[in-house]
Design a binder for these strands. Structure first.
Length: 301
DNA sequence: TTCCAGGTGGCAT
DNA sequence: ATGCCACATGGA
């Protein structure tokens, strides 16, 4: 099935290669092939339209509607990025170059559990190797996606039933036991975390506006922190990419570098960087972080 | 050989 | 609450 979504404000190359996701592979024709949640797709962009080809989905009205909803959310199409960029430019003197470099990046709204797995693997690791580990993990114990050669990532149930030794082929190193423990812990937290405020009003999603059960960003963050292998940086990435908390500002080695180079912070002054981000990047901290991350990383590669 | 990568857990203060 | 340090793996 082919899904077409109008979007004037996206650069899929930047969006897929800026380090927020790890499963999309660039192809010679400029398209990307990969997987998100339980779906496999080839994606290209031309003249204001994102074209998503899914061999594993047959073209029925229900499937079409579901695909449109899934991919529109995945690409965060309801957000006005032009407005976000203007907001950042008017609230910070020095972010202009990074915004210009990162123009076209959108924050992908990824599956929560996949985001947890991906960023536990990401710790003290490099991006090519993270990609390899995730593919190996999917192939070892994920589910084959029908009509595709790709596998989805293993569910928390599958992963919680494995031993770290059984994950040896994935070459996760010391992260293997983290992943197994986090899977077990996540199963308990899932009922709390799946009441997602950003999805309120979305068809097919429970409206939790009256139940009082919606978590604040801070509450979500502290729950994520309780997972084995999840510290401040990884929890921030999960908030940003897995829960749509676009104000979240993850600080890693690259962000420390760029905050030193552009803003003059001491590279150990995480406290100051965090405060600065809150005051200057505010509601768009996560987007600012991606612009800065992309900006500094591109200079060094 | 040593250093590094989208850091964190465990332990000592 | 904060400061070290070991941790598995593979590429530069």
């Amino acid at each position: 099935m082919i899904t077409e979504l109008k979007c004037r404000d996206i650069d899929i190359w930047k969006t897929f290669t800026c380090g927020q996701c790890f499963r999309w592979k660039h192809r010679p024709d400029g398209s990307f092939a990969g997987a998100a949640a339980k779906r496999a797709a080839r994606i290209k962009y031309a003249s204001g339209v994102i074209v998503i080809e899914e061999d594993s989905v047959t073209d029925t009205p229900e499937n079409r509607k579901e695909a449109e909803h899934f991919w529109a959310e995945y690409f965060d199409l309801s957000r006005d990025y032009g407005k976000a960029r203007e907001w950042l430019l008017s609230h910070d003197e020095k972010i202009g170059d990074a915004v210009k470099a990162g123009d076209g990046i959108r924050i992908l709204r990824q599956d929560l559990w996949e985001t947890i797995v991906s960023f536990i693997i990401s710790q003290n690791n490099n991006i090519p190797r993270i990609q390899g580990c995730i593919e190996a993990l999917a192939e070892l114990c994920g589910e084959k996606i029908p009509g595709s050669e790709l596998y989805s990532l293993p569910s928390p149930e599958v992963l919680s039933g494995m031993t770290p030794d059984a994950l040896a082929p994935v070459r996760l190193g010391y992260r293997a036991p983290y992943l197994v423990a986090a899977a077990r812990e996540y199963i308990k937290l899932r009922p709390l975390l799946e009441a997602e405020p950003s999805l309120q009003g979305t068809p097919g999603t429970a409206d939790i506006s009256d139940t009082g059960k919606a978590l604040t960003a801070a509450e979500e963050y502290s729950l994520l922190l309780s997972l084995t292998g999840v510290g401040p940086k990884v929890a921030s990435c999960i908030s940003l990419f897995g829960l749509g908390r676009i104000e979240s500002f993850p600080i890693d080695v690259w962000v420390r570098r760029v905050m030193h180079e552009v803003y003059g912070f001491d590279e150990g002054d995480m406290r100051g960087m965090k405060k600065y981000a809150e005051e200057h990047f505010g509601q768009y901290g996560g987007l600012a972080q991606q612009y800065l991350f992309y900006f500094i990383r591109r200079q060094n590669m």
